[in-house]
Amino acid sequence: MSRAVKPGVTFLAHHDIFAKDAPNSFQACSLQAQMAANVYLSMPDEGGTLQIWDQQLSAEAFDEMRGDSYGIDPTLLGAATLEVCPEAGDLILFNSRKMHAVTPGSEGMRLSLSCFVGYRGPATPLSFWS
């Protein structure tokens, strides 16, 4: 998936869990781990920082906090465990089941290519989707 994010846009705190989105899918429920893979093509002059929290919220707690939105205000989670400000050309892999958000950028577009990588064990090839 490609993303072009204009200056000033924030990605709210959220998690990406394939099994939550497709609870009746063997492909989704057989995952032992799920990662996000982001390649950054260009970054704003300032901001666009990837924030990751170590805690995992239950699906129920997250849904209650977010209401009708896709995510929640990152300040509700406290300080992020990790903050990474990618540069053009960087590849970042992280556990997408952990809460994550992106701070707003200033001047310049944030362009990236993204997909998910699924792990089902040492005898099974990795799977990719977006």
Score class of each variant (00 low, 15 high):
9 V>D: 12
22 A>L: 10
110 R>P: 03
4 A>V: 15
82 L>D: 06
97 R>N: 14
121 G>A: 08
66 R>T: 02
68 D>R: 07
36 A>G: 14
128 F>A: 03
26 F>G: 07
74 P>L: 00
95 N>H: 13
104 P>E: 02
34 Q>K: 02
108 G>F: 11
109 M>E: 12
16 D>A: 03
32 Q>K: 12
30 S>V: 07
94 F>K: 04
1 M>I: 07
38 N>I: 15
64 E>Q: 08
86 P>Q: 01
130 S>Q: 08
46 E>I: 04
48 G>S: 01
34 Q>H: 06
32 Q>A: 10
70 Y>M: 10
24 N>T: 07
68 D>H: 12
129 W>P: 05
65 M>C: 10
13 A>V: 01
85 C>Y: 11
129 W>K: 02
59 A>R: 08
16 D>K: 01
71 G>W: 15
31 L>G: 14
36 A>L: 01
3 R>Q: 10
87 E>I: 05
124 T>H: 14
109 M>K: 12
129 W>N: 10
46 E>P: 05
106 S>R: 09
44 P>S: 05
19 A>H: 15
89 G>C: 11
18 F>K: 09
57 L>A: 02
16 D>G: 03
22 A>V: 06
26 F>H: 12
127 S>A: 11
19 A>I: 14
121 G>C: 13
97 R>E: 15
97 R>I: 01
28 A>N: 13
124 T>G: 07
20 K>I: 09
107 E>S: 09
78 G>T: 00
104 P>T: 00
60 E>L: 14
76 L>K: 15
64 E>P: 03
75 T>S: 15
89 G>V: 04
18 F>D: 09
35 M>A: 09
121 G>F: 15
109 M>D: 10
115 C>I: 02
49 T>I: 11
102 V>Y: 13
127 S>H: 02
7 P>L: 08
58 S>M: 12
16 D>W: 00
33 A>Y: 14
34 Q>P: 06
126 L>G: 05
70 Y>E: 12
20 K>Q: 12
42 S>G: 03
126 L>K: 03
108 G>R: 07
94 F>D: 04
12 L>K: 13
25 S>A: 13
95 N>G: 03
100 H>D: 05
